[in-house]
Design a protein around this nucleic acid. Sequence first.
DNA 1: GACATGTATATTGAATTCATAATTCAATAT
DNA 2: ATATTGAATTATGAATTCAATATACATGTC
Lengths: 237, 237
Amino acid sequence: MSHDTMATLTRETISAAPDPIVRRTLHDELLERLRSMIIDGDLAPGDKVPEKELCERFGVSRTPLREALKVLANDGLVTLTPNRGAMIADLTLEDLEEAFPVMGALEALSGEMACANITDAEIEKIKKLHLEMVTHYEARELKLYFRTNQQIHEMILSAAGNQTLSALYRGLEGRIRQARYLANMSTSRWTQAVQEHEQIIASLEARNGAELAAILKSHLANKFETVKEALQDRGKP
Amino acid sequence: MSHDTMATLTRETISAAPDPIVRRTLHDELLERLRSMIIDGDLAPGDKVPEKELCERFGVSRTPLREALKVLANDGLVTLTPNRGAMIADLTLEDLEEAFPVMGALEALSGEMACANITDAEIEKIKKLHLEMVTHYEARELKLYFRTNQQIHEMILSAAGNQTLSALYRGLEGRIRQARYLANMSTSRWTQAVQEHEQIIASLEARNGAELAAILKSHLANKFETVKEALQDRGKP
DNA sequence: GACATGTATATTGAATTCATAATTCAATAT
DNA sequence: ATATTGAATTATGAATTCAATATACATGTC
């Protein structure tokens, strides 16, 4: 992508420069900041997002902020109503049920491709993360467990070596995010999840793509069950 | 409308009115127009997109246009370089090869879900379209063939009844679009494509999800082969 | 007191303006 | 003639301004 552009900039001299100055637009910067704020739950679903307030918070004018909001709306993270402004998108049960099979298909694909492309070093890294995750599980550290868990799935995804796949998967993952923080896994389900991860590692080591795909898919199904319950129970004690 | 009905008009009846006035923002309108211009090839890949010119063409100021461009860039239809403006994204061979397996997974899913949900009426509609497509094939009307073909795939997608899936698939389809118009199908491949479509119809009628998924996947693989060749040959006679 | 109507305020959508970076092109040096 | 420098032009990024719309509040009516 930026490959061609760079190459045709000038002969070789300048494009081969060691450290090109990277400038970003405010829009881009804002986009990234807002995205992670939403995904991390700093901005809660359903919250109205007054432009003025955010502008002050970031010290920018409304123009770049609004540009960022349009993009986020396009990605489904924000809901934009004409003349009424933006609110952080609220995940409905329907959204969740729609996203589920799609993520399943993508997850399965990532498993197959990862098995085809993963290096031994990457497998080692994942095994380390897995041990770390088990530690968090034993200590009942839900937050840390989630993070490590996420890292493992990220590693599988990047091992698949397909940017398009990664981008789509992350996009959906971002939309599911909110219920994540509501989820209060039962002990038995948590144990089951860890066991599934053991299987994931095994299939990965065996580089058995079909098997990994199947495991990831059912692992995801279980995760969705948990998220769905959290979503349905929200608001209640 | 009778007296009685008038008298009983309430807030509910009003909001449930059949035809609410739909107002759209300029940004939204532009987004749609630009998107289809790109997908239809009115704006060629690699073209620079001078803001001023487009503003004049649409009779709007730069603000909503730029908002639309940011969104299109996010979708990969446009490439934005800071201080240098926008150009219509150029599809590389790598992009194509990345998109392929992802579209395959989505297409397979759409087949499975379509078989589970499709109505008899929808199948009839698709069969009609298929006959139309065969006519175009026999007349060697490539453009019309493409359009009808696309409509069939659109119908399967919408029969699957999953908005999320549709949105993602259309997004990828949009990025592949350009090579479409370069493709000059050989007679044998064209014949093969039509035969595959016969199988698609058959699986759909039998509501055999797994079978349809497999056929769609290999049908897609063949399509990619054609598109890939077109992409490699472009510029040459 | 509940509801409807009208007015003031605040917020958003879009145009305009301003500042800065990129491009063009002429003048100069090689 | 070609390449290089620097001023003029143009296009872009972002802030500001203006207009349209929605919200909040107050007033009046039943």
